[in-house]
Amino acid sequence: MIIKCPHCGPREASEYTYIGDASIQRPDHNDTDMEKWSDYVFMRENPRGAHMEHWQHTSGCRSFVKVLRDTVTHEISDVTLEGPWQAEDKS
């Protein structure tokens, strides 16, 4: 499986670390609602098909990317940079 890092270009999945489901939001740092935290840490949908997920390019630039991946075919249809920086247009 190849993930196109916005900074480094297409790289094998082994250069990345799977971070988790990107369709869920981490509660605010000061939120103490245990239900919300429980949902965030433990509850996941397990879709057959399109799945939005975070990966970190740990062997490369260490950026985080949001990846839209099909859990059946492994086809990756979208990769976007996450975080406060914008990816530079490399063309």
Binding site: R26, H29, H54, Q56, S63, F64, E82
Partner: peptide, 13 residues
């Protein structure tokens, strides 16, 4: 290190 990077990038930018 990874946990800290994740929190800074995804949650506390």
């Amino acid at each position: 290190l990874s946990q800290m990077e994740r929190l800074l990038t995804l949650n506390w930018p």
